[in-house]
Write a protein that binds this DNA or RNA. Structure first.
Length: 810
RNA sequence: GCCCUUGUGGCGGAAUUGGCAGACGCGCUGGACUCAAAAUCCAGUGGUGGCAACACCGUGUGGGUUCGACUCCCACCGAGGGCACCA
C-alpha cells in the first residue's frame, strides 16, 4: 500500500473541520500572529495556479507559528463586488448576487481542497449586507469628517465601457485607457463623490519608512504621491487689476531667469486675459487640445506647441513684464495649472523658448545655454539679491523675500489627486446619501444601515441611458419621503470595488459583530497584520487606499495601529511552461484541480514552494510536479512498509546515527522558515531524507522531528505519518516545533582549503581548533601545494582558522 | 527618457559577513532488480583538452578594488515591472 493522497487528504481535511483545529481564540495568553492573504475576486473561471502560491506561503508560516506557540489568525474571504458579475448578469439575466455566491462556493471548494489552515468561522464576503453595512458606516464617517465630498470635476470618462460608460479613478487609467477592458478615456466634467486622500498625503509618505515592505513598492507609492517642495509665486496680470497668476515651482531661486508664463489651455484665467487680436488663435488652440486624448498630448506629441494670449504678467521680483502663453505641456491637473518659464534651466521651457523665440537668461553659472538647459549646481548670477548664493541658500532667501513681499510662500505640492469614489454601477455598495428636493443632502441614519441594494429585474439592470447607474431605474428604492413630507432621491452611484477591500482585514478580527465594525478589545489584541502576501499588481491602488482608510480609522480611535500591514511580501507570478504569462489564448494555463486530483494537494504545495524564491516569477514545469510527488512517495516509503505498517528500521536507541544531519536540518529549516525561504527549506528536508535512506537504523525521535518539519509544507501527509509514528489522536498542529542541539553541530575536524595565488590546489582535514600557524605549517607541507609553489617565492600568507590558507607567491 | 527589480549548467534554482561556484530537484548517462518494461534503489553528470594524474576556461559584457569577487565599485548590454512634458 503506497501513499494514497486522495484518502489521506480527505481524511485530514474532515478531521480539521470536525476538530475545529484552526479556530483562533480571541482571548489568549499566547502572542498573536496575523497572517493574511489578499482575498480573491471569485471569478467564474475559478482558481488559478497563481492563487495557491501566496496562500501556501502564508499557510506554511501560519502552521510554523502555531507550532512555535503563537495564536495565529489566518482567515479567508471574498472580494465579491465587481464588474464581471454585473456584466454577466446583463448578458444572461441572472441575478449578480446568486451568480456571485455560486462562484464563491466554487472558489471555496477549491481552496479547501488544498488544505489551508484558515479559520473558516471568520469567512467574509464584501457583498454581504452585514459586511457592507460597515463599509457604508466608514463612508459616513468620512463624510462627517469632511473627507468625502461631491464635486463637479474633470473625470476620466470611458463612454464605451459596457453598460453605458463609467467614470474611473486616475489610478485606473493606463495610457489613456481603462485598466480593465482597455476602453478609451476622455476628460469630462461630471459630478462625482470624491475622497480627500490628499489630506493624508504626508502621512502616507512618511509612515512608509517604518514598514517592512519591498523597497520597490514603497518607491512606487512615494512616487505616486509625488511630494515636491517648492514655492507658490503670484504674478500680477498687467492691466487687469487684482488678477493674479499663481504658479508652483520647485526652483523659486530661478525667478530672475523667468522670461514668460504658461497657463494650461483649460486654465480659468485664459478667457479673461486674452487680448482681442489673440482671441481667435487662442480659441482655435483650445479647441484643438480639447479633442486630444492624454495619449496624444503626451506620447505622440514630441513637439512643443502653444499660443500667446496677448497679455503680460509682472515678475514680482524685478517688475519685468513677461508674456503669458498657453501650451498643452502644462497640465491643468498638476500644481496650479500654470508655470513660470525659466528656459535657461529647464529643458521643457528651453524647448518652448527656442521654438517661439523667447528670451533665455541664465541665472545659474555653468552649462552651455546655446546647446541645452542647465539644471546642474552652480552659483547664482543675474539674480539681484541672490547673486553668489548656492541652490538651497538661494531658495531659502527667495522664499523669505516672497513671503515678506506677499508675492508667494513656501508650498508643498503633490502629484496625488483625490480619490474618485463613485461608479455608475448596480453591483457595488450603495452610497448612503439622500438628495432632498430642497437641494440639501443627508446621510442615511446610522441605525438604518445597511442600505441594501434593491432586487432588480433584468430590464432594470440595463443602463439608464443617462450615464447614471442602473439604480436610477429602481423607482421604489430610489424615491423617499421624509416624515415632514419632503421628497428625496437616493444617491444612485455605488462605491468602487476598492471600498470593501480597504478594510476587510479588520472585519476578520470580529466577522460577525452586528454592533460595531469590530469589538475594540479584539482589535486591541489582534492589532495589525503581521504578514500580508499578495501580488505586486496592487502596489498602489489597493495598498494605498487600505492605508488611507486605516489612518482615518486610527484618527477615529477605532484601530490602534497607524499602518494596517506591517510586513508585505509580493509573490512572483507563475508563468506557463513557455516562460510566458498564463493565458487562455496562449493555451498554457494549468488548473490546480487537475494537479490536486492526480498528484494531491501536498504535491502542489511542495512543488509551488520548491520552484524557486516566493518573490520571483517562475515557469511551470510538469516534470517538476512529478518530481515533487516522487519525493513525497520517497518520504512515505522511508517510514512505511508496503503493507502499511511502520518500518522496523525505527529505533529508540540513542547513538550518533543521523545526529549531526538532523540537528543541521532543524537549524536550517527553522531559519529558512523565518525568512520565508521555502525552496531551500524543502531542499534541506530532501537532503535529510537522502541521508536517512543510507542508514539501516532510523532514530524515532529524529523521524518524528522530521515529520513535524514537513507538516507546514505537506500537512496531510505529515498528519498521517505522525499518527502512524506516534499513535497520537491529536493533530500535529500544536506540537511544539523541534529544537536543535548546537553542540551536535560542532566538529572535531574541519576540511581546510589550501590555495596558491587564490586558486584551490589542495584540501586537508585538520583539527577544528588548529591555530593559524598550524594551518600554515600544514599547507606548506602539503605535497600539491609544494608542487604549485615550485620555483616561486612566497610573498604573503593569509590563513583563517577553520577555513582556508592562501599562499601568495611569485 | 526616469525609477525599481533582475541576469549563474540542457532546465528550475543554491551559495551566511568578500573565502571550495553549481546544494536540491528536473533531464540525461550507466549499474542493480526484472523474462522484459515501468516503478524503485545506487552511481555519474558545467565546458574544453587528456587513458589518467591533472591543466585551462567558466556566474550578461568591459574595466576596477582585493591575497581572494556570483558577492563590492564604475561603464555598458539584455529581460521584467512601474512612471512619464509633475513645473
Amino acid at each position: 500500500m503506497g501513499y494514497d493522497h486522495k484518502a489521506i487528504e480527505k481524511k485530514w481535511q474532515n478531521f480539521w473541520d470536525e476538530d475545529q483545529t484552526f479556530v483562533a481564540p480571541d482571548k489568549s495568553d499566547k502572542e498573536k500572529f496575523y497572517a493574511l492573504d489578499m482575498f480573491p475576486y471569485p471569478s467564474g473561471q475559478g482558481l488559478h495556479v497563481g492563487h495557491p502560491e501566496g496562500y501556501t506561503a502564508t499557510d506554511i508560516v501560519s502552521r510554523f507559528k502555531r507550532a512555535r506557540g503563537f495564536n495565529v489568525l489566518h482567515p479567508m474571504g471574498w472580494d465579491a463586488f465587481g464588474l464581471p458579475a454585473e456584466q454577466y448578469a446583463l448578458k444572461t439575466g441572472h441575478n449578480p448576487a446568486t451568480f456571485t455566491d455560486e462562484n464563491i462556493q466554487t472558489f471555496k471548494n477549491q481552496v479547501k481542497s488544498l488544505g489551508f489552515s484558515y479559520d473558516w468561522n471568520r469567512e467574509i464576503k464584501t457583498t454581504d449586507p452585514s459586511y457592507y453595512k460597515w463599509t457604508q458606516w466608514i463612508f459616513e464617517k468620512l463624510y462627517e469628517m469632511g473627507l468625502a465630498y461631491e464635486d463637479e470635476i474633470m473625470v476620466n470618462w470611458a463612454p464605451d465601457f459596457p453598460g453605458g460608460g463609467l467614470v474611473v479613478a486616475n489610478e485606473e487609467v493606463i495610457n489613456g485607457k481603462t485598466e480593465r477592458g482597455g476602453y478609451p478615456v476622455y476628460r469630462k466634467p461630471m459630478k462625482q463623490w470624491v475622497l480627500r486622500i490628499t489630506a493624508y498625503a504626508d502621512r502616507l509618505i512618511d509612515d512608509l519608512d517604518d514598514l517592512d515592505w519591498p523597497e520597490a513598492i514603497k518607491e512606487q507609492q512615494r512616487h505616486w504621491i509625488g511630494r515636491s517642495i517648492g514655492a507658490s509665486i503670484r504674478f500680477a496680470v498687467d492691466g487687469h487689476d487684482g488678477k493674479q497668476i499663481e504658479v508652483f515651482s520647485t526652483r523659486p531661486d530661478t525667478l530672475f531667469g523667468a522670461s514668460y508664463l504658461v497657463l494650461s489651455p483649460e486654465h480659468d484665467l485664459v478667457d479673461q486675459i486674452t487680448t482681442a487680436d489673440q482671441k481667435a488663435a487662442v480659441a482655435t488652440y483650445q479647441e484643438e487640445i480639447a479633442t486630444k486624448s492624454d495619449l496624444e498630448r503626451t506620447d505622440l506629441n514630441k513637439d512643443k506647441s502653444g499660443v500667446f494670449t496677448g497679455a503680460y504678467a509682472k515678475n514680482p521680483v524685478n517688475g519685468e513684464l513677461l508674456p503669458i502663453w498657453i501650451a498643452d505641456y502644462v497640465l491643468a491637473s498638476y500644481g496650479t495649472g500654470a508655470v513660470m518659464g525659466v528656459p535657461a534651466h529647464d529643458q521643457r521651457d528651453y524647448d518652448f523658448a527656442k521654438k517661439f523665440d523667447l528670451r533665455i537668461t541664465p541665472v545659474i553659472e555653468g552649462g552651455d545655454i546655446d546647446k541645452e538647459a542647465y539644471s546642474g549646481e552652480g552659483v547664482h548670477i543675474n539674480s539681484g539679491f541672490v547673486d553668489g548664493l548656492g541652490k538651497q541658500e538661494a531658495i531659502d532667501k527667495m522664499i523669505a523675500w516672497l513671503e515678506e513681499n506677499c508675492a508667494g510662500e513656501k508650498k508643498v505640492n503633490y502629484r496625488l489627486r483625490d480619490w474618485i469614489f463613485s461608479r455608475q454601477r448596480y453591483w457595488g455598495e450603495p452610497i448612503p446619501v439622500i438628495h432632498w428636493e430642497d437641494g440639501t443632502q443627508t446621510l442615511v441614519p446610522e441605525d438604518e444601515l445597511p442600505l441594501r441594494l434593491p432586487e432588480m429585474t433584468e430590464e432594470q439592470l440595463k443602463p439608464s441611458g443617462t450615464g447614471e447607474s442602473p439604480l436610477a431605474n429602481a423607482k421604489d428604492w430610489l424615491e423617499v419621503t421624509r416624515e415632514d413630507g419632503m421628497k428625496g432621491r437616493r444617491e444612485t452611484n455605488t462605491m468602487p470595488q476598492w471600498a470593501g477591500s480597504s478594510w476587510y482585514f479588520l472585519r476578520y478580527i470580529d466577522a460577525k459583530n452586528g454592533e460595531a465594525l469590530a469589538d475594540p478589545e479584539k482589535l486591541a489584541y489582534w492589532k495589525n497584520v503581521d504578514l500580508y502576501v499578495g501580488g505586486a499588481e496592487h502596489a498602489v491602488l489597493h495598498l494605498l487606499y487600505a492605508r488611507f482608510w486605516n489612518k482615518v480609522l486610527y484618527d477615529l480611535g477605532v484601530v490602534k495601529d497607524k499602518e494596517p500591514f506591517q510586513k508585505l511580501v509580493n509573490q512572483g507570478m507563475i508563468l506557463g511552461a513557455n516562460h510566458e504569462k498564463m493565458s487562455k489564448s496562449k493555451g498554457n494555463v494549468v488548473n490546480p484541480d487537475d494537479i490536486v486530483n492526480e498528484y494531491g494537494a501536498d504535491t502542489l504545495r511542495i512543488y509551488e514552494m520548491f520552484m524557486g524564491p516566493l518573490t520571483q516569477n517562475k515557469p511551470w514545469s510538469e516534470e517538476g510536479v512529478t518530481g515533487s510527488r516522487r519525493w513525497l512517495d520517497r518520504v512515505w516509503r522511508l517510514l512505511i512498509n508496503e503493507d502499511g505498517s511502520i518500518t522496523d528500521k525505527l529505533t529508540d536507541k540513542a547513538d550518533d546515527t543521523l545526529k549531526k544531519e538532523y540537528n543541521l536540518t532543524v537549524k536550517k529549516v527553522t531559519e529558512d522558515l523565518e525568512n520565508m525561504h521555502f525552496n531551500t527549506a524543502i531542499s534541506t528536508l530532501m537532503v535529510f531524507v537522502n541521508d536517512a535512506y543510507k542508514e539501516d537504523k532510523l532514530p524515532a525521535a529524529y523521524m518524528e522531528g522530521f515529520v513535524q518539519m514537513l507538516a507546514p509544507f505537506a500537512p496531510h501527509l505529515a498528519e498521517e505519518l505522525w499518527q502512524k509514528l506516534t499513535g497520537s489522536k491529536e493533530s500535529i498542529t500544536y506540537v511544539a516545533w523541534p529544537t536543535y542541539d548546537e553542540e551536535a553541530l560542532v566538529d572535531d575536524t574541519k576540511e581546510i582549503i589550501f590555495q596558491v595565488n587564490g586558486k584551490v590546489r589542495s584540501k586537508q582535514v585538520l583539527p577544528a581548533d588548529a591555530s593559524q600557524d598550524d594551518l600554515i605549517a600544514a599547507a606548506k607541507a602539503d605535497e600539491k601545494v609544494q608542487k604549485n609553489l615550485d620555483g616561486l617565492e612566497i610573498k604573503k600568507i593569509i590563513a583563517i582558522p577553520g577555513k582556508f590558507v592562501n599562499i601568495v607567491a611569485k
